[in-house]
Design a binder for these strands. Sequence first.
DNA 1: TATTGTTATACTCTATAACTATA
DNA 2: TATAGTTATAGAGTATAACAATA
Lengths: 150, 150
Amino acid sequence: MPPTRPDPSPEPQLGELVMEVARGLRRRFAVTLEPWGITPHEARALRVVGHHEPTRLGVVATHLRIAPRSVTDVVDALEARGFVAREPDPSDRRATRVALTPEGRRVLDELDAARRADSEDYFAGLSDRDRATLARVLGRLVDDRRAPGG
Amino acid sequence: MPPTRPDPSPEPQLGELVMEVARGLRRRFAVTLEPWGITPHEARALRVVGHHEPTRLGVVATHLRIAPRSVTDVVDALEARGFVAREPDPSDRRATRVALTPEGRRVLDELDAARRADSEDYFAGLSDRDRATLARVLGRLVDDRRAPGG
DNA sequence: TATTGTTATACTCTATAACTATA
DNA sequence: TATAGTTATAGAGTATAACAATA
């Protein structure tokens, strides 16, 4: 019997490959995150908050590209863990800002290091040149989606 | 207001980029699939069945890299739509095989064409060379995960 | 005893719609 | 009227554990 490679199609498409690699990364990162009791989604939200604090929830939604409703949930989870705190926006009483707590900052730093190590391990088999190409090409795709035709 | 690019980190990592691109692809593919009333996950399972039929459910699980429990669900969904059919495996009465129905074959062909067009559109901005590199590098990562160290 | 697939259950990630409080 | 965020609800995609039938 052949070694059952993942093979949804005889000639795999770029899109499939990207999604397959993403699944592998997500699985791996979820395991890495277990000691912190945090999910990849939550870790990503924590990172967004950390790099933009203090930030309105709507801005977090934009950076995460998720619905406002989903931001409520993930910020609830982070706040329950004591990693972030909501505070009223002084300039608009409808708005809410989030900022890291000291604990959140500490955890974010640990998480960044763990993620970095994880990523380096995952992509260890690639040459520097391949990695650079990958970063350039993927970065361009992300930007294209953000500003299509611009 | 600034153009709010997605920016979970000041120096985005390869892993993040891959996952971000995968999210964009998934969103787009989900929209493309709407006329067929099928999800990306189901379409992928249909494709696996189509390229390996008749196949045991366990083999489908391996190709899809999901738990046996999850195969039951997705095959249930495809069977309810009349795209696949379960049949007993003559050589092992514990096992179940799945195969496409004629309708499933027809839909799979349409889906393959739609996916192809979608993918080509999504990656249209890249040079042939960048696409080739992407395919090579990602394909290698997929294989590495399958046979780590081998 | 080990394997195939199912039932039961639950978690993660995401969305739409209706609502509240402000602006 | 429009915006910021919430409550309510739902669906997609995945997992573990216990089990039944068979090997």
